[in-house]
Design a binder for these strands. Sequence first.
DNA 1: GGACATAGATTACGGATGTAATCGGCAATG
DNA 2: CATTGCCGATTACATCCGTAATCTATGTCC
Lengths: 122, 122
Amino acid sequence: MQISEAESRVITVLWERGSATAEEVIGVLKDQSDWQDATVKTLLNRLLNKGAIAAEAEGRRYRYRPLLKQSDWVLEESRGLLDRWFDGRLAPLVAHFNAHGELSRNDIDELRKLIEELDHGK
Amino acid sequence: MQISEAESRVITVLWERGSATAEEVIGVLKDQSDWQDATVKTLLNRLLNKGAIAAEAEGRRYRYRPLLKQSDWVLEESRGLLDRWFDGRLAPLVAHFNAHGELSRNDIDELRKLIEELDHGK
DNA sequence: GGACATAGATTACGGATGTAATCGGCAATG
DNA sequence: CATTGCCGATTACATCCGTAATCTATGTCC
């Protein structure tokens, strides 16, 4: 499933709310973008045609709901990045951030805690 | 600096070799794609116009060399992913892989080692 | 029941992208 | 020097994408 940047912003609203009408999506996005209503409708329609979301009639309008799962989509994106640039491994990614001074004390702490847990668990 | 997927495959060849003629780039990419020569030339030209690479005359042809640095580009891409989906933090990304069973024993080991080093260093 | 509002569908359109053919000039070669 | 080959530049063209206006059918209100 391939969705564009703009489409991902729309489906993100559905991911956050579970489901929504076009009106609701438009409302949410009005705060985050300066898209016209028509733009959001187009994007909803494209997502619908791609099968990334579904629509069920609710009175005179539709209620939209994601079919594509956020965690799957995010995993695909993440794996793509990792495979293309980091030999599919996580450590080189982390090292890359560090090498660019983009690894905060907090990042390190969080990672250490997480790794400890995983390490014991496995 | 914004470069497309196809363009990134071309500049990657330059990143790997430091610099190269069009012929060399074409040669390398012939093994990895089924692009025609003309396609690679177009992409080199687009990268040139964007200022992502430079060309210096070498006899009758050009020698191309990246201006955009790989590590900068990769960092931008990585940061984009992290910011959009993981609140800008690395631990949630790692956790996401784990939650999907995409964290290998090796990943964990490498991460543990890396974090230990960083932890002491800081 | 007819005018009006509205939701979703259709159409629009410029720019980016993937993919490539062709053009124009210079360089090597006979 | 005329021809040929090759290099980079220009042009081509379909599709995707961002962004939106318009159309059509249906529901709502006097």
